[in-house]
């Protein structure tokens, strides 16, 4: 009989908190983008210069603001990391979650390339989003690897609980 596994208990709350923090950060950056970055709470000279980053030519992709893309990303991640979604999680949902976070991480690489190599300035709020995306991706990955049998070695004979999702 296949072994039933569940995610570690820290995974659902951790990913939800990270997603909500990322959502708040991205929402703020989106608001600032559409309000002309006039009230951006950040240094505006030297290496840390949020306005220089958020008003640069790299702040949009094909006319779509990257802040808005970030907001949509975290709306999706927050939905995927809600407790009820975790409880009903399936291998497909796990793959979507990790895949989406992986796409987010690739976007972070692109934005870091733009900040460090093209704009020569760092936006603190954007860095917050980058760090959250990085931690979220690896939290999901480690959570997937660290799945444990539902009830120790003998779990194969136990009925599934709410947290039990996968079989191997």
């Amino acid at each position: 009989m296949p072994l039933q596994l569940r995610h570690p208990r820290w995974l659902a709350p951790t990913t939800l908190v990270l997603s909500v923090l990322g959502l708040a950060d991205a929402a703020y950056l989106t608001f600032e983008h559409y309000s002309g970055s006039t009230t951006l709470a950040c240094s505006d000279s030297g290496a840390v210069d949020c306005a220089k980053v958020t008003t640069s030519q790299w702040s949009s992709i094909a006319g779509v603001p990257v802040a808005l893309l970030g907001l949509l990303f975290f709306v999706g991640m927050t939905a995927l990391c809600l407790p009820q979604v975790w409880r009903r999680s399936t291998p497909t949902l796990d793959t979507i979650r990790i895949g989406a976070a992986g796409v987010g991480l690739l976007m972070v690489f692109y934005l870091l390339w733009a900040e460090f190599l093209q704009i020569h300035a760092i936006c603190l709020w954007c860095t917050g989003v980058h760090v959250i995306t990085f931690v979220l991706f690896f939290a999901l990955l480690f959570g997937q690897i660290l799945r444990v049998p539902v009830d120790g070695v003998a779990s194969a004979h136990e009925p599934a609980t709410d947290d039990t999702q996968h079989v191997e």
Binding site: L112, L117, I145
Partner: peptide, 29 residues
């Protein structure tokens, strides 16, 4: 699981290294 943990930990290090490389190259430029 042990093997995957090692690979993922290495991936974390690689990601951080790429960020550091971006920073150093950007600074030099």
């Amino acid at each position: 699981q042990k093997k995957l943990l090692a690979i993922t930990s290495a991936a974390v290090v690689v990601v951080l290294a790429v960020v550091a490389i971006f920073f150093v190259v950007g600074q030099n430029k």
